[in-house]
């Protein structure tokens, strides 16, 4: 049953854009790590775990060769990621010229995970031709300290967002619901922080209690909590694409979380369940497939409008 706020949120969604995007990055939009499996911070929610299965490109020459090879094999874009340095940003400094070269040679769409990059690096990334910056947004100082273990504040996140917005065409904050060991702390504040900035989309993630990390075994936020936050975002960002991203639990509560997101007016879900796609159709949404990360703009090169292409890749 939808809550009152969800009903309002969904009516805004229907009025603005009755399309639901099912997003599948594989195989056209692979993820690369410029630090291989290494992360200096080893934050409590990840511990470097999710770097392990990214394509390792820990030197500019490997990044260049890998991107050319991917482009020759049907990739349309890449998510360029990596572990954080001790200051809390992905150390992209040595890769600027390579990104520019790959852009010139291939035209690949670059979505870059930045972290708390300084303004000078944000500018360099923009000059190199980066198309989109994906940046975590944390709305509570105690969460930054408790989870990342660094002495930075929400002000640093605001300044980074502003620097990125001034340098890169699309900036997409990612809010991880339950990042504080499963508790909701600064998520609503993070929405307020994003409201002051010209963002291209807003991605919601849900804490995964990953094995062998400090948060293994913690309770994740319940589906209604996820729904409440997305509905609040829909009311505050009626025209900005809202997405439920790939980093979310997929076992217990997965379908209910996706349905709550739908009821709250979410525009996109990365790798949604078949049940969710059926529910979206029943709710009057037109379902389309995006062959890219969920925050990438729905431009022709990434879109399949053919219905049979909604089946798994």
């Amino acid at each position: 049953m939808a809550t009152k706020i969800q009903r309002r949120a969904f009516s805004i969604k229907l009025k603005h854009d009755p399309t639901f995007w099912a997003c599948y990055p594989h195989p056209r939009f692979p993820t690369l790590s410029i630090t291989g499996g290494e992360c200096v911070l080893n934050c409590k929610h990840c511990g470097g775990h999710y770097l392990k299965h990214m394509l390792s490109c820990s030197s500019p020459s490997v990044l260049f060769r890998t991107c050319l090879n991917l482009a020759a094999n049907s990739a349309r874009g890449v998510l360029l990621s990596g572990g954080y340095n001790e200051e809390g940003w992905v150390p992209l400094e040595g890769f600027i010229d390579t990104i520019a070269s790959v852009k010139r040679e291939t035209g690949l769409f670059f979505n870059v995970h930045t972290g708390l990059v300084p303004p000078s690096l944000a500018k360099e990334l923009g000059k190199a031709g980066v198309d989109m910056a994906s940046v975590d947004l944390i709305g509570a100082n105690e969460t930054i300290e408790h989870v990342l273990g660094i002495q930075r504040t929400t002000k640093d996140y605001e300044q980074t967002l502003k620097a990125l917005v001034g340098s890169i065409p699309r900036v997409v904050p990612h809010i991880c619901i339950g990042l504080h060991g499963g508790q909701v702390k600064g998520e609503f504040r993070a929405l307020e922080m994003a409201a002051d900035i010209d963002i291209a989309a807003l991605v919601f993630l849900v804490l995964i209690p990953t094995k062998d990390t400090a948060f293994e075994g913690v309770e994740t936020p319940t589906p209604p909590v996820v729904g409440e936050l997305i509905a609040e975002a829909r009311l505050n960002f009626p025209e900005i694409p809202l997405t439920l991203g790939c980093m979310r639990p997929r076992s217990e509560g997965r379908i209910e979380t996706e349905l709550q997101a739908l009821k709250s007016g979410v525009d996109r879900i990365e790798v949604p369940s078949a049940e969710t796609i059926r529910a979206a159709e029943k709710m009057g949404l037109e379902v389309k497939r995006l062959n890219a990360c969920c925050a990438v703009p729905a431009e022709d090169e990434f879109v399949s409008s053919v219905k049979q292409n909604l089946s798994p890749s």
């Binding site: 599948y24 594989h26 999710y50 790939c246 997929r250 790798v271 990360c293 798994p312």
Partner: peptide, 8 residues
């Protein structure tokens, strides 16, 4: 299903 893909 992995983080970014689903394969039959």
């Amino acid at each position: 299903e992995s983080i970014k893909a689903v394969s039959a």
